[in-house]
Design a protein around this nucleic acid. Structure first.
Lengths: 341, 341
DNA sequence: AAGAATTATGAAAACGTTTGCAATACTATT
DNA sequence: AATAGTATTGCAAACGTTTTCATAATTCTT
């Protein structure tokens, strides 16, 4: 059945089989209305028979778009980015694009390498996570005139078009929730903020909101944990084993909060009676933990979809107007916070 | 600073700037040893100055590899696939390849579309999750002679080269652990097995292992839940609210098991005293839940890395020998299982 | 110091498409 | 029936590279 071509079936093989010129075959794909129905049928039959698959690389050489969009993330293996990637992928797929994915492990120099790599493949656009990038990356993007956008973070003053949430606000909202409940002795667990503007923004704004209400967080109440339930659990246990433990924990993201919750359970503490815990993100699963995690919801899926739609729109339209979208946050109060004793 | 070329900087622009021929520029990249150090320096300076970025699509037209590998997964937003994707991506990146990623949402027809789409981009190879694919997909792969491989599942009789674990064994091991602990009344929660050979294999082999020991699972002890903590939690609650509840739950994967655990906690059941729960997978986080989840560990990261290494090796070597790798499983006994009362 | 061997470079063809232009074959108008 | 117009098709150049072959510039032999 399979007609096992020896060489590669290209457009001229199809043309030969259909007894027309290569130009006509090309036109059948790109401007079907310029080809008579009869010829089209002949050609389609030949395409079918030979199993021809279009070669986008060759098309690209004529100024056509490559039909690919690059996405560079810190890591794929991360509840929240996985969700964004999925939504973004679906959205651009909808518009006929294919995703080129690369990760850099929170290393901005590697981010540059990845962007470069993607540009060698002539992606039609490159999307990055966050607003903080190396000067080299920005220069490269500007120089190549490749459309670029930032996902996940929103900032009015952003250079790049962006779709995301206001992480400063997120930090503030989390802090304010705890303050409203009367907490004054608050512990913080955050990831390393270097090269991670999301965490950076959340942390400084949370601290600032607390300070504004006269709450100062001493050094020993602050702990650093990477994105890992296990390590957050350890960090929480350390915080809880101090002589006087904090009455509430503000965590940089939901994974950390989840770890903190397990840490509390491990220490025999009741949540929220003995200690309140709040996260940021509202990851899939945060709602289902027992007790349900109180958190500041960042709509990852919405962000990913919206980013994909806007970006493909931006790329395909000829008059490119910048866009900056801020997706709303939501305080989701579940079972891990309660008024301070 | 940025020399703002009006047109695109291509190899001939560089050649002009360095006052050499395009051929020499090309050679500087592909066969540096054939170019005198002095000329090379001149050229590199020009490249630097103009901000030239190689065009892989154009290279590809000369039979060169595209330097991309396609990966088609059911979904990205899934702890276990995210882990595999990350490891696979890192491994192929190491070998100089870039990842083209597509997802199909457990729809084998869409899988075909995605594979086709990737082939239009002339990926150097395409990796699929699982061994079950539509006839159209297999035909397409054979016809295009694109290297292909299967990830995640291992089977001796697999057509495609594969790197994965024996899911039948995983199901059996889970069942046997429960049997060894003396459980006879066992509930099952599994995802829909259509178009999902992993789940299919696990389920049938678990059932078979149970039957071999004279344990039959009645219809009302079997529940279906998609890949979602929330829905698994609901399914578990349904199972637990029967008149006589099972003494143990065997879950198709760790996410389901996690949901089941929360469900038990919600119902006021103590785990493992009142009910034992075992999962399959050992996802990140499974170790840290309280109590730690007993599970059959599938080494996702190892599978992803190994798959990436082997596949790139396979693609770049000229004498391509098939490979089939079976990654070992491990029973990880933590806190959610105990002997039957 | 002349010829041979080696090294470095350039010219041009090739890769698989798209597209502007020209040519041909129709159809409609008078 | 001749003309003008339109619909369809083909020819050939172009896209940005790589590579073969040929040529020019060195270096080595003797």
């Amino acid at each position: 059945m399979a007609p096992k071509q020896k060489g590669n079936v290209d457009i001229v093989a199809v043309a030969k089989a259909a007894k027309v010129s290569p130009s006509t075959v090309s036109r059948t794909f790109n401007h079907p209305d310029l080809v008579s129905p009869a010829t089209r049928k002949k050609i389609n039959r030949a395409v079918q028979k030979l199993g021809y698959v279009r070669n986008r690389a060759a098309q690209m050489m004529h100024g056509k778009r490559s039909g690919t969009i690059g996405l560079v993330v810190p890591t794929i293996n991360h509840a929240i980015f996985a969700e964004v990637i999925q939504a973004f992928s679906d959205a651009i797929d909808q518009a006929g694009f294919t995703l080129l994915l690369a990760s850099h492990g929170y290393d901005l120099d590697r981010e540059y390498e990845m962007v470069r790599k993607l540009m060698e493949h002539r992606v039609d656009g490159v999307a990055l996570i966050g607003l903080e990038h190396s000067a080299a990356t920005s220069r490269l993007i500007a120089q190549q005139e490749t459309p670029a956008m930032a996902i996940w973070n929103y900032a009015e003053e952003s250079e790049l078009p962006c779709v995301g949430a206001d992480n400063r606000l997120a930090g503030r909202m989390a802090a304010e929730h705890l303050l409203e409940l009367g907490h004054r002795d608050i512990g913080l667990i955050f990831p390393d903020t270097r090269g991670n503007d999301r965490a950076q923004y959340r942390l400084t704004s949370a601290l600032e909101a607390l300070r504004k209400k006269g709450v100062f967080v001493p050094e020993h109440r602050m702990s650093e944990a990477p994105y890992s339930v296990a390590q957050a659990k350890q960090a929480a246990i350390r915080l809880f084993s101090e002589d006087a433990r904090p009455t509430a924990l503000l965590c940089g993201n939901d994974v950390i909060a989840q770890g903190a919750l397990y840490g509390a359970q491990k220490c025999g503490l009741r949540v929220p009676e003995d200690v309140s815990i709040i996260g940021i993100g509202d990851f899939k699963g945060s709602a289902d933990i027992e007790p349900g995690l109180t958190t500041i919801r960042i709509p990852a899926e919405t962000i990913g979809s919206l980013a994909g739609q806007r970006f493909t729109g931006y790329i395909t339209s000829d008059m490119r107007e910048q866009f900056r979208l801020c997706c709303g946050l939501e305080r989701v109060v579940r079972g891990t916070t309660s008024p301070a004793a």
